[in-house]
Design a protein around this nucleic acid. Structure first.
Lengths: 121, 121
DNA sequence: CAAGCCAACTAGGTTAACTATGTTGGTGAA
DNA sequence: TTCACCAACATAGTTAACCTAGTTGGCTTG
């Protein structure tokens, strides 16, 4: 894979994954193959795969969940195609901060009355 | 630079540069400081600076010319353009969230010095 | 003087290694 | 059975090191 057409590998991989998502080959809610699997499939290093996934993440097409995987977002909740990248970034930041804040707040709330950590398995 | 607010450094740098561009501090046609200079200014590695510039390049705010530099594009020829009131609101929200999160995180760090679970790492 | 070379810059791409952190499943002890 | 621990795997971020390739300016040489 990653033909030698001048177009950098991380863009080729991002293009391919984007096409699979838009083409329905990778349905919303399903996880992408892991970084290592993608690196193996495209015969690329982990770094370029991470860069490719980072692009899709930046575009809002996928969301990464640490420890679990990278999941394709529903078409409705992902940003419109012509939306400024600015907005995408900001929305991502808000989403990220909200999630983290909720986590920390919950931890704070439970740690005062209960034992923290490992709440759900 | 690159405060420890949880937001990754390459996004902080990208945010800062984007603000400078949108704020007119970096006028269209003018080159950004070189990668090395930015790395020095933000006290970050070359890699994170390259990632930050890569984001702006991806957004179309700047264009890189190999061997010369990275130049701010004219406002007309770059995507997006007019900022809806949405954007201002989002920016304020992000700032607010960042401050609140930093506070809570600090409180967590200082109040739980003996947190049980995962002791050995 | 002019041509060519070369050193010193620049952006860009790639790789490997390390750290941090979250998730999951298995194992073994109480 | 239930709980604590742990190993394996996941994303995410960062750093350092190489390599390619374009640009520029100075210096040497014809």
């Amino acid at each position: 894979m990653v033909k030698n057409t001048g177009r950098p590998g991380y863009l080729q991989i991002a293009d391919d994954l984007r096409a699979q998502i838009n083409g329905g080959s990778l349905a919303p809610g399903t996880p992408l193959p892991s970084t290592a699997q993608l690196a193996d499939r495209y015969d690329a290093s982990l770094s370029v795969v991470k860069m490719a996934v980072g692009i899709l993440r930046n575009e809002g097409l996928v969301v990464g969940q640490q420890g679990k995987g990278v999941f394709v977002r529903d078409a409705e909740e992902r940003p419109a195609g012509d939306e400024p990248a600015d907005l995408i970034e900001l929305r991502a930041a808000v989403r990220d901060l909200s999630v983290r804040l909720a986590k920390v707040e919950e931890q704070l709330a439970t740690s005062t009355s209960h034992r923290p950590g490992r709440s759900s398995r």
